[in-house]
Write a protein that binds this DNA or RNA. Structure first.
Lengths: 285, 285
DNA sequence: GAGTGGTCTAGACCACTGT
DNA sequence: CAGTGGTCTAGACCACTCC
């Protein structure tokens, strides 16, 4: 009579975690507040230490709370989100057509995120790699074709943690015409990639951003200084020329707890205003 | 001599997890392959069951492996990703201007994702809510202003799991002019929201998508049938009229392991081709 | 130094999978 | 039914925080 066919009894750790979550969502526990200690949990729910731990660990893995040795776990406070807008693509294109003085001055200020520029360390590494099947398909070149790979990172100087990270791929055949592009000593190039490509006769006419997400590896979490339970946003930017041919791929990762990707899409006006009819129209008043 | 000041010894669970991860990344363990059993792990790394569990649990929380009672944990196989493209916004706008017959036929086929339409159950619920501070700010109305809230869900009929879920908010003041819009019995409305708004004289001229991500709650993971370690993509779509005024907000959630959000951004052509100059240009040959 | 959480062990019971 | 992983307990040691 008492035993249900499924879910005989919800595991104690889940019940604890749900109760705690409700305390948080109801506002009983506010961001920054400390959770009950493990000892208190064992008492209140009459369970073992390990079950109490498991409950807290679950909430941690869901990104709800912070933790640390010897410190009481606390309800996580939301970080301000840095907005990365798709409008930057057009701005960079406009900039590329400006005189060099102007291009040089506007250069890398883009990457600031509430930090002054001297607190950040920028690195760029150039090399040539063979196109993987994945990259070759998008760039429409044979697998194994040589690609110029450029890796960019910005780090917080004091904490040593990653602030931004991206990898760009361009077919060598496209840029071999201008050896200056192949030299990482020329970074930061005034006017960015779009100006670089202009020197070999390429104009980017369309950008496609492909966004998805996943959990970081242990190593990634450490490099970014990510708390547990924070996913990464994965963004692949494909730049196309006037013929719709992909000329550059740029893969970037962003911590989801402090990033918002914004895409602004203009729509063409209606040529004729939509007809004002629909099912039920004019039936009952 | 042997004891370092920090990180005296990396926790055994992390070492196990890293070793297993390397096996996966090197291709030694391929997608679908079973991991070593807990017993084997305790032997190979001479640790306790719980440490072996902890290592496997870590990989699970990073989305690398699947698991289940009595079943060996396996290397997760990537799911095919459903692409949601920003080009749909323009397509929906174009459709709204078509005759009703055409609008009605193209209606809801959009949501298919490799499933036939009769395997899916669509629900829509309408009600009126007061604008939260958050919504009010974006829609530029006073807090507490009445909003038409429309909740849409699609479910896999056989498994009962969520396939898509979104919530839309429109100020009541905008749509009160056409009571038909307030009636959920009129779903699916032929031509969608953009046609609905056209009946009260509103034309969407710009769409802004704001994308971020987070881990699902326990309840969300269950509703979507999400394996552990899979984040949600959070997408807020803001529709603007010709004056740049926000007229609709639509919040949607997507499982990151089976979704790709794609944004296509056209760029305006250069008016003047960029000058071919940069630092170092013409110095050494 | 007292109290906290992080790591780890040993051992138990149960639900489920596969044969 | 044997073997597996999921849940849970009790108890230990250590690193760290805060007082």
């Amino acid at each position: 009579m008492d035993s249900q066919p499924t879910a005989v009894q919800r595991p104690i750790q889940l019940r604890i975690a749900d109760d705690l979550r409700m305390s948080i969502e109801s506002g009983e526990l506010r961001p920054g507040d400390a959770l009950p200690t493990l000892g208190e949990i064992t008492e209140r729910w009459s369970c073992s230490m390990n079950s109490a731990r498991a409950a807290v660990a679950l909430l941690k893995s869901q990104g709800l709370i912070t933790s640390g040795r010897g410190k009481a776990p606390r309800v996580r406070e939301a970080l301000p989100r840095v907005v990365r807008s798709s409008e930057r693509h057009q701005e960079e294109k406009d900039l590329a057509a400006r005189p060099m003085r102007e291009r040089a001055s506007t250069g890398e200020a883009e990457t600031t995120m509430g930090m002054s520029i001297q607190d950040q360390a920028f690195t760029s590494q150039y090399d040539t790699v063979e196109a993987t099947d994945d990259l070759a398909r998008v760039l429409d070149v044979p697998s194994g074709e040589p690609l110029l790979r450029r890796r960019y990172q910005a780090r917080d100087v004091s904490a040593g943690r990653l602030l931004s990270s991206s990898v760009s791929y361009i077919p060598r055949g496209l840029v071999d015409g201008n050896p200056a592009i192949l030299d990482e000593e020329n970074e930061p190039w005034p006017g960015g990639t779009q100006h670089q490509l202009s020197t070999v006769g390429v104009e980017i006419m369309q950008v496609v951003d492909e966004v998805t997400g996943r959990m970081p590896t242990t190593a990634e979490a450490q490099e970014w200084g990510l708390p547990e339970g924070v996913p990464l946003l994965i963004c692949r930017r494909i730049s196309l020329d006037g013929d719709g041919k992909a000329v550059e791929i740029s893969d970037a990762t962003y911590p989801a707890d402090r990033t918002e990707l914004r895409f602004v899409i203009p729509l063409r006006p209606w040529q004729t205003y939509p007809p004002n009819d629909y099912p039920g129209k004019g039936e009952a008043a």
